[in-house]
Nucleic acid binder design. Structure first.
Lengths: 242, 242
DNA sequence: TCAGTTTATGTCATAGTCTGACATTTAGCA
DNA sequence: TGCTAAATGTCAGACTATGACATAAACTGA
């Protein structure tokens, strides 16, 4: 394993058996127009993610060394850290993307919608998007496997909670702007932080168990939580049942 | 810094100037009856915590090596990891203790109190306990410095959020038992998870800025959040303003 | 097609976290 | 005083992460 260098400085890399076969896993170019450099980057990144998730699922997050991931894809360990800030980062890749999608979707909801309605619809959109993007792996969608992985790995759970916490602010900013709430004022929708943070955390918590049911089950879950919070929100925001 | 080893294998450890002076920092035995062995353990642990927080405050969490902490207390690096599971652990020491106090206090609240009232009172008790336990350091209570440290260190924030998340379950279990809610049922107080998780997380978020005002300011903050959630709770639980 | 530039990777060295195994010291006690 | 167990020290090593520099590959323009 690793590399051997002879006295003339010629380095022979000793590859894992599956090394060469691993790289083209995600196949051809998604965008043929894209210059080859960027295409290869994307391929390498996707291959790293794919290999990482496979290994995480097979042997657990903590028991998978970065070295094993890079060996599987046949790149240098250093390369991993050029694509991802740290080991957590690669596991939370999808989470981060989905969160961004959610905030974007929230910002794009029509102004006539109640905050809660907007959140709900943005949530649905994101769920559908996730399902459309995800592909099956061992008979189960990749995103579900990721959720399970995170839920069962303390370090990842912590990181993803912080992520939700941080993004809660972003989401609330979007909502506050929609509702013309002065950013500095006391009227800033603290409650929505609560909805956002709590519901998201709770939904995440139950995703593992209810996730099999797909977007519908998740939406039902969301509604169950939101219904309980709705009266309070309705008292302070323009009421409307979505 | 560190150690120097000559060609005969003799290792000379280069200690920080304050090394020897650091150990007796927390002075004599708190419980003279306690056997010396346990007393020394406690002293070492406290000295480690104290040195760690000093260093974290001075140069930041990430830029403080475990080695520096152990040098300051004049123990082996290995010893650190016998007292604390990891570097995070020492920074969250107080958080963990305070959370435990809170859950205990919650369980001890009289049954006649509404869940929200019980949470509030347990929260107050804990705050007062924290203030009583904490001592000034550079003119500011230690616990406040810890809060600031956590808030400004991503890794610590993540860990403490997970801690809140995990303990939320514990707290809700306590509440569910108080209210005779069947643990498995749908009547399980989801809302209280929300209160617990959201309010606690939010309070934590504002602790840094409002913490100067002491327990009163924190309680006011808690009330501000709780007031908004109260109507919802009141609709589903026995109402009572406390 | 070639030379020059930029970008992605490889390679090497190193700091820092954390763990296991074993040796040494210390407290508590017969 | 000597035995026992607990605490700590010592040593080796795996793993994560980063900086510095070298090399290879992809682009650019003539």
């Amino acid at each position: 394993m690793g590399s051997v260098e002879d006295r003339f400085g010629v380095t022979t890399v000793l590859r894992a058996p599956s090394a060469v076969a691993a790289r083209p896993r995600l196949g051809g170019a998604s965008w043929p127009d894209e210059p080859r450099r960027g295409r290869k980057k994307r391929q390498t990144r996707d291959a790293l993610i794919d290999a990482a998730l496979d290994l995480f699922e097979a042997k657990g997050y903590e028991h998978t060394a970065v070295r094993e991931i890079t060996d599987a894809v046949d790149v240098a360990e250093r390369t991993f850290f050029r694509y991802f800030a740290n080991k957590e980062d690669i596991a939370l890749f999808f989470v981060r993307r989905e969160m961004d999608q959610f905030v974007d979707a929230l910002g794009a909801r029509p102004a006539r919608e109640t905050p809660l309605t907007a959140v709900r619809n943005a949530f649905r959109q994101t769920l559908e998007q996730i399902q459309a993007d995800s592909y099956l792996r061992n008979g189960e969608p990749r995103y579900l496997a990721v959720i399970k992985l995170i839920d069962s790995t303390p370090a990842l759970l912590a990181a993803s909670l912080r992520f939700i916490y941080d993004n809660g602010d972003k989401g609330v900013d979007v909502l506050a702007e929609r509702e013309n709430v002065d950013p500095g004022s006391d009227k800033r929708p603290w409650l929505l932080i609560a909805i956002y943070g709590a519901v998201m955390a709770l939904v995440h918590r139950d995703w593992r168990t209810h996730g099999q049911g797909g977007a519908e089950a998740m939406l039902a879950l969301f509604d169950a939580y939101a219904d309980q919070l709705a009266p309070t929100i309705a008292g302070r925001w323009r009421p409307s049942v979505g």
